[in-house]
Design a protein around this nucleic acid. Structure first.
Lengths: 104, 104
DNA sequence: AAATAGTGCAACTCTGTAGTTGCACTATTC
DNA sequence: GAATAGTGCAACTACAGAGTTGCACTATTT
């Protein structure tokens, strides 16, 4: 299953979500724990985590009575790979057109 | 000048803008030309192009009386590289924590 | 058993923005 | 010089989503 690309970027296009990802990049944490460090409510964070989980950037594990979230760097790297391929393809094609144009 | 990352993702988090980028990935085009191929008005496309240009994904060149837009694959590849580094850093750090935890 | 920490869900506000219509302006092209 | 193709700008609508408050529920701890 290859995750659709656009929703991933939409998820990454929000500063608050990057704050959450950055925090999770240092250590796993629950929504409540994150709410202690960030200037938003726990409910807002829960919504962001749902978005991030939907696009596979985050996964959750039950630990006692808390839901602990973990960031998935591999998904980010996979997205990066696909992005790089698209950019390279554009430049390749446009360079080819330019070459043809100049040969006229 | 390293472009801020989040605005780039916000720009990439829209399907219509991807349609525009895909079209420009095949050949340069003006806002009016793009409006002929896509199911949105020329004005809407102009706004999207402004957003894309703001984050450096697109540049424009005057050709006669038209403003022709060109996609910049290099900016996409650069973004991809930075994204990959971030993902790798997360996984590296969390793996280190896991190792420490298991050694207890 | 009681207190509590963590979560889930719903309703609401508010801002941002995607998209539209309409008109004015300008440089072409004939 | 007149018609026209391309763009620029402004006002407006409509919807998505970021954030809030409030309450209910549940599984822990003590």
């Amino acid at each position: 299953m290859t995750t659709a690309l656009v929703p991933v970027f939409a998820a990454l296009g929000d500063e608050t979500r990057w704050s959450i990802l950055a925090a999770l990049g240092e250590s796993e944490a629950s929504a409540s724990a994150l709410a202690g460090r960030l200037p938003v409510t726990r409910q807002a964070i829960a919504k962001h985590l749902a978005v991030l989980q939907e696009v596979g950037l985050v996964e959750s594990v039950r630990v006692g009575r808390e839901l602990r979230y973990r960031v998935l760097g591999a998904q980010l790297s996979d997205t990066a790979r696909r992005l790089d391929q698209i950019g390279a393809e554009w430049d390749r094609r446009l360079a080819a057109i330019k070459t043809i144009a100049e040969s006229l």
